[in-house]
Computed example of a mutant assay.
Amino acid sequence: MLSWLSIMSAAFGVSVLSAVLPLISIELFIVALMLNKPETSWWQLALVVASGQILGKLLYYFVGRGTVGLPKFLHREKKPSGRWARRLDGFRSACHDRPVWTTGVLLTSSFVSLPPFVAVSVVAGVARVPLRLFIATGLAGRFVRFSLVASVPGVLGAWWF
Rank of each mutant, 00 (worst) to 15 (best):
V14F: 11
L70E: 09
L55W: 03
I24G: 06
G82W: 00
P99C: 07
P38L: 04
S93C: 03
L45R: 04
V48Y: 00
S41I: 02
R98P: 09
V31Q: 06
L59P: 03
F62K: 08
F73E: 06
A94H: 12
A46I: 03
L33G: 01
A11V: 04
D89P: 08
S3Y: 04
N36F: 10
V20R: 06
L23E: 09
I24R: 04
E39W: 10
W4V: 14
I30K: 00
W43R: 02
W84L: 15
L88Q: 06
K37P: 00
T67G: 04
G82D: 01
N36I: 12
I7A: 10
C95G: 03
L45D: 01
S9F: 14
V14Q: 07
S15G: 07
L21A: 11
A32R: 02
A10N: 06
L23R: 09
N36W: 14
R87F: 14
G56I: 00
V14I: 15
R76F: 14
L47G: 14
L59D: 03
S93G: 05
K37I: 08
S6Y: 10
L33Q: 02
V14Y: 09
W42T: 15
K72A: 15
S93F: 08
E77L: 11
L58M: 12
K37L: 10
F62C: 08
R92A: 02
L35C: 10
L28A: 11
R76Q: 13
G69A: 15
K57I: 03
G56L: 00
Q53L: 09
G13C: 12
S9N: 13
L59R: 06
V16W: 08
L59Q: 06
R98D: 15
H75G: 07
H75R: 15
G66P: 09
I54R: 00
F29A: 13
S6K: 09
Q44I: 12
G90L: 01
Q53T: 12
S81I: 11
D97S: 14
W43A: 08
V20E: 04
S9P: 05
A32H: 00
S41D: 12
F73I: 07
R83I: 11
W101Q: 13
S51Q: 03
A19R: 00
L88S: 04
S3T: 15
K57A: 12
I7F: 02
I26C: 03
G52F: 00
R92H: 02
A94T: 11
P38S: 08
W42Q: 14
V100Y: 13
W84R: 13
F62H: 08
Q44F: 12
R76N: 10
M34S: 01
L45I: 06
T40F: 03
R98A: 14
V68R: 10
L33C: 11
D89S: 15
S15E: 03
V16G: 01
A46H: 03
E77P: 04
K57D: 11
L45F: 06
P99V: 01
V14K: 04
M8F: 13
P99H: 05
I24T: 05
S18W: 05
A85E: 12
G82E: 02
D89G: 13
L35K: 11
A10T: 15
